[in-house]
Design a protein around this nucleic acid. Structure first.
Lengths: 139, 139
DNA sequence: CTTGACACTGTAGTAGGGTACAGGGTGCAT
DNA sequence: ATGCACCCTGTACCCTACTACAGTGTCAAG
């Protein structure tokens, strides 16, 4: 069950041109072609495109997504490299989760104080994220 | 204790030009000026810039950040609007946290299987985010 | 055997988010 | 009173991540 580029794009909910763009920049493999030169994709390509799409929504750049996608265990890959790179990524993700959690708390507090109609002078969001501590982001 | 643009930029760890850019697009207020036209910022501007910087790192666009920043309690703001907008943002943030947590789990599993030298054919990250459910992002 | 939907390549344009001057003024330390 | 660091306004340019053609070829349905 193979897909043409249009069907793939539609299924993964990205643009047709976007698929070709990702191919150009090496985020997805060059697919095999028909006699006529049409790209034909395995169904797995859908997952890959969806992954890229969602990772992008999570704030990863295409460059970062590339490095996430190439993280896999294979005989050819040195295990230490995978461990190191993987640990780095995990730390990064943990940091993002912490920051988001802080934002969420701040927002929740804000909404609470709002519903109690106690106008706050300072925006609690600012305080929530402006804090100096634990911040030397590895971006 | 007021700041010139250079000092502000340095303290908040953004570029001087970036500060002017944010002013142009309305993310920060036009500050008062000296006789000579020099911008002078209150110290609170540092927190605002830091907030913008970190929210950006978390994948929010300047447009979204604008909407986060205007979410504050003030007599002029309708409380229902704040609640609605805030709830939306919280849902969004929760979704991001969930996705990131899934990615983290997938990465950890990958590293584990690596240390056990079990080559994985498929990148386990793909499955982590590929799930259909709970996904009609409000971006 | 044509017509309409889809595919191909290549190149150009766009939006978002800055970044880098050029050309000129300010301000304070020596 | 003259450097030197800093500020001002423009305008132009850059990178990322698409998006939109133009010009042409393919293929399946009627």
């Amino acid at each position: 069950m193979a897909l043409t580029i249009g069907k793939l794009a539609q299924t993964a909910e990205v643009g047709r041109e976007t698929v070709r763009f990702y191919e150009r920049v090496g985020l997805i493999d060059d697919p095999p072609r028909t006699q006529a030169g049409y790209r034909i994709y395995p169904t797995g390509a859908v997952a890959r495109l969806r992954f890229i799409k969602r990772a992008k929504e999570l704030g990863f750049s295409l460059e970062e997504i590339r490095s996430l996608l190439t993280l896999r265990v294979s005989p050819a890959t040195n295990c230490d490299d995978v461990q190191r790179l993987g640990q780095e990524r995990i730390k990064d993700i943990e940091g993002r989760i912490r920051d988001l959690a802080r934002m969420k708390t701040a927002l929740a507090k804000l909404l609470e104080s709002c519903s109690q109609r106690e106008p706050t002078e300072e925006c609690p969001l600012l305080e929530a994220l402006a804090s100096e501590e634990n911040h030397e982001a590895q971006h």
